[in-house]
Structure formats: C-alpha cells, structure tokens
Nucleic acid binder design. Sequence first.
DNA 1: AAAATGTTTGACCACATGGTTAAACATAAT
DNA 2: ATTATGTTTAACCATGTGGTCAAACATTTT
Lengths: 214, 214
Amino acid sequence: MNNTSKEELILEAAMDEFIARGWSGARMQSIADRAGINKTLLHYYYRSKENLYEQIVRRTMEYFFGSIFRKISGIENFEEFLRTFINTLIDLSSDNPRLPMFIMQELSRGGEAVLAILNDVLSRNNPPVTVVMLRNITRAMDQGKIRKISPIQLIMTLLGSSLYFAMAEPIVMKIGGMNGFMEGFDRKSFLEERKKEIFELIYRGLENRVADHG
Amino acid sequence: MNNTSKEELILEAAMDEFIARGWSGARMQSIADRAGINKTLLHYYYRSKENLYEQIVRRTMEYFFGSIFRKISGIENFEEFLRTFINTLIDLSSDNPRLPMFIMQELSRGGEAVLAILNDVLSRNNPPVTVVMLRNITRAMDQGKIRKISPIQLIMTLLGSSLYFAMAEPIVMKIGGMNGFMEGFDRKSFLEERKKEIFELIYRGLENRVADHG
DNA sequence: AAAATGTTTGACCACATGGTTAAACATAAT
DNA sequence: ATTATGTTTAACCATGTGGTCAAACATTTT
C-alpha cells in the first residue's frame, strides 16, 4: 500500500462522485469516504476541490476521446469506420453511463479552465478525432460510396443515436416500466441489437442509389 | 401587477435557475434576484426549495411531453408522423437547450417524488405519447411501408438524433471553433438543415425494398 | 375606514461545507 | 537510529445557504 495507490484511490473516488453529482453536488467528505480515507489526506494530495475537479475533468476527457481515437484512427474502409464508431460509442457510454452527460454538462458550465483542458486533450491526438471522422465521411462521398450529405450533420446523428440511450436509460426504463412494454428487458442484448440497428439504419440511409422509384 | 403575476414571475425565474444549474447548483437568493423580489417573498409563496423544485419539474415535464403530444397525436400518415416528430423535437430542444438534459439528469437523480410527477404527467395524455409513437411505427410496419425493425430502437434513434445537438451545442461549437470548420455557422439554417437531413436519412434507412443489390 | 393580503427590510439562526491546523502515530527511506 | 513522508484524529474557522421572524409599509378587498 504505497502512496501512488492512495492517490489513485482518491482520483477514482473523486471521479465517481463528480460524475454522479456534478460540480456543485459533489462533496469532499463524500469523496474521502468513497476512497476510505479522511478529509485531511484529501487536501494533502489535492489542495482544493477546484484542483481535484480539474484533474478529474482532464482524466475523463482523456479517457473518452482517447478511447474513440484509438479505435477509429487508421481505419480506411467506410463501412468498417461506421460500424466501429457506433460500437465504440455504445460500449463506452453503456460502460460509463454518466460520462457523456458529465462532459457535456461541465463543458456548458465550465469556464476557460475546462475549455483549455478540452483543447489540450484534443490536440494530443494527431490528427484529431474530429478530423479523422470528417475525412472518412468526405472520402466515402468522393468515392461515391455514399450519397452527398453534410458531414457534420451525419456526425451529430451518429453521436446522438449512439450516446442517447445510455444518457436517457433511467428515464427510458421508468417510462417503459410504467407502460408495461419492456418486460424481460435484457440490457446486454438490447445494446448489441442497438449497434446493429443503428448501423443498418444509417448505412441504408446513406446509400448512393439512383432514384429508383419516382 | 397582482399576485398571480409575481407568483408566475417566480416560477419562471426558478425554472431558469434550476434548469441552468440543477438542483444542487440552484440558489434561492439567485431565484429571488432573477424574479426581482426578495427571499422572504419567495418563501411566502413556495415554502421550501424542495417544494419549488417539485413544481418546476412538473411544469417542465408538462411542457415538454405536452408539446410533443399535441403535435403528433392524431397523425395517421407515417411519413408525416416521422417528419413532425423530428421537427417538434428539434424546435423544442433548440428553443430550450437545457431542457432535455435537465429532465434526464433530474430523473436519474430524483427519487420517488420525481418519478411520481413523471407518471402523473404522462398519464394525463390519452393515449400516452409513448403509445402513440409505438402505434404509428407498428402500423407502418404492418402495412409494409417500412421494413421490419425494433420500434423501441427506432424511437431511441429518433430522440437521440433530434435532441443531441441542442444538448451538445456548447461543446460542438467549442470543438468546431477550435478546428476552424464551422466558420460562418448559422444556427437557424443549421437546424432547418438538420430536420431535413435526419428525416431523409431515417426515412431512406427504413425503406422496405426487396434486396435489390446482392 | 377597516381588514386582508402582498411585499419589503434587515436582522437572525442552524447547519453544511470547504478548508486549516497542530499534534500524534505509522511506515518507509536514508 | 534518524529523518522524511504518509496518515489519522479531532478540533476549529469562515463562509454560504436554506429558512425564519417581527415589524413596517403598500395595495387590494370588503
């Protein structure tokens, strides 16, 4: 049980707390409890709530964007890119359901500091995820593999479709539970089905076929 | 300037504050300031923060689900249903960008009380929005207008695609601003374009055509 | 005019929370 | 052995926040 272990323990506890309750909801005492240590030690390692928070935000963004980057960079084939991107987003968000909302929420709320972190994190991947995505889409369009669309719109649709369920899962389950449909719901198989359905829907929707019916 | 007016002013102020900062971030003093009154009067009308919050949640949900219900109920044609649903979601969420996230966040966090409100709100529409949506989709499937898919998956995709941009707008703009693409961005036309692109993509993706290539 | 209701002022309280401090103890590094 | 570092205990402080109270003033209702 060396120092790194406790420092790491604290970070993980803080991550849980901040992601679950947000900046204003998070409690230093609660973080200490989760980490199994006391408040004094918390301040010993991380001077203030602000400081700790900043490190959590960085960590979270690195994890999120890093994961996506590692999975999609290097893929040349559009179909594979599409499938991988969707799968990665769904896996990421279903493993860490509060993560996407945390990132979005804190980026809306946060000031310069949070933006600087985002900037820093994104610029570490070369080329940045955003560029990789745009390239894949425009290339597929140029090659005539998909019809002409707005790349940014497609990216929005992909992100929304893939991330939404994890974000809305609590409410979906509640509404579903109330109305009765959703009995025998199996999360794992639902998510696998989701991957396929999104891919299928979007891939078909992008098909570049000459108007074949009116 | 009668009493109803002030009571209403407070509600609106509280709505802004709660939606912008969430439960733990919202401040009673700040609500009073926004409403242009003092804290005492705030407690005079709404006893406690909890109580005020509950009314805001109810109001918000009534507004959100009510708007959707009013727009889509009664529509028989699937294409029209699809288009209207997408348009409504985009208009609603772009007019009130924090609303969807507020609802989702507070429903994850909130206990029995919030769930009870949701239940109450949803049961006031007959048939509930959820049922209307499911019906439209299954009917279209039965009539062979669209291919066989999982209705719930489609609904998730529709919600995600349509709501996501408003939720992620701050981060999208920041990333977009950093990378340079997104110059001359016009929100209004982007949103109109978004409506069309989502509809087009999903409508094509749902088409029920016999395998015509492979 | 009188009563009821709306509204402000300003002081006040209890409590939670972020943060500090000093002293003692534990464990590892020199 | 001694020093440096990690860790706990427990008390403590300043501040912010939800909430209250009493008294006065304003406006509407009766």
